[in-house]
C-alpha cells in the first residue's frame, strides 16, 4: 500500500476536513437504537436471575479509522491522540481507560470512545494525523450490546458459526461475523462476557432474536 498523499500533519489539518460536533452537550437527549425497548424499566421490573445478562452501552462515540499500518508516522500520531497504539495483529483489540480499539481489517480500526468526547478526539486526529487517512464518525450507525452470564457462550453458538472455545477465541479477540441473519463485531471481554457492535437498523431484530434465543436460559436486562 502506498501513500498517495504525503502531506504532513499540519498540511492535512489545513485542508479543513468538515467535521461537526454531533453531540454538543449532555442536556440534549439522545435516543439509542433500542430506546423503544426501554431497558431501564425492564431492568427494574424484569427477572433478576437467569443465564443471560444483556446490557446496552448506548450513545458511545464510534470512530472508524482507516490508515496505513506500515506508516510509522501515522501509528505514532494515533498513539499520541489516544494514548494507546493501534492493534496491528489481525482480530485483536486494545483497551485503555475509556477508549477501546478493534482491528476490523488490515487497514481499518473501530475506536469506541465516550459519546461526549467524540468531537474532541476527532478534532485531535485532524490536527495530528499526517498523510492519507480517513476518520469517520459512525456513532449513529451502530450500537453496542454486552452479553454475559453462564449461558452467554451457548447463546452465541446459536447465532454464529465462529468457534467460541477459549483456545481459539481468547479474551480480547475481535471477529466480524454473521450473527443470526445479521452481522456483528464480537469481542470477548471476559471468559463469560462478550461485546457486540451491531448495526442500528438491525438492533431491533437482534433484540428480538436474543429474547427468543434466551427463553430457555432466562434473560436478565441490566441498565
Amino acid at each position: 500500500m502506498s501513500d498517495l498523499n504525503n502531506m504532513t500533519a499540519a498540511e492535512s489539518a489545513a485542508t479543513k476536513a468538515a467535521i461537526m460536533n454531533q453531540v454538543p452537550g449532555s442536556e440534549i437527549e439522545g435516543q439509542s437504537p433500542l430506546h423503544h425497548a426501554d431497558f431501564a424499566s425492564l431492568a427494574q421490573q424484569g427477572p433478576k436471575t437467569g443465564g443471560i445478562h444483556l446490557r446496552e452501552h448506548k450513545l458511545l462515540g464510534h470512530l472508524t479509522l482507516r490508515c496505513n499500518a506500515e506508516n510509522a508516522e501515522q501509528l505514532a500520531a494515533v498513539e499520541r491522540v489516544l494514548g494507546v497504539a493501534l492493534p496491528l495483529q489481525p482480530l485483536s483489540s486494545v483497551e485503555s481507560g475509556n477508549y477501546s480499539i478493534r482491528w476490523m481489517s488490515p487497514d481499518e480500526w473501530l475506536i469506541l470512545v465516550p459519546g461526549l468526547e467524540t468531537f474532541e478526539i476527532e478534532t485531535k486526529f485532524r490536527d495530528a494525523m499526517p498523510g492519507h487517512y480517513s476518520l469517520v464518525n459512525s456513532s449513529g450507525g451502530s450500537t453496542v450490546l454486552e452479553l454475559s452470564g453462564d449461558n452467554a457462550v451457548t447463546l452465541l453458538q446459536k447465532a454464529t458459526s465462529v468457534d467460541l472455545h477459549l483456545n481459539s477465541f481468547p479474551v480480547g479477540k475481535v471477529v466480524s461475523t454473521l450473527f443470526a441473519k445479521s452481522t456483528a463485531t464480537i469481542r470477548r471481554i471476559d471468559e463469560q462476557r462478550f461485546e457486540l457492535v451491531i448495526r442500528r437498523s438491525f438492533s431491533d431484530y437482534i433484540w428480538l432474536w436474543i429474547q427468543d434465543a434466551s427463553l430457555e436460559y432466562g434473560l436478565v436486562i441490566e441498565a
Partner: peptide
C-alpha cells in the same frame, strides 16, 4: 489470508 484464520463459507 487477511484475518489469518478459517471461517465458514457463509461469510
Amino acid at each position: 489470508p487477511h484475518c489469518a484464520e478459517y471461517r465458514e463459507e457463509d461469510e
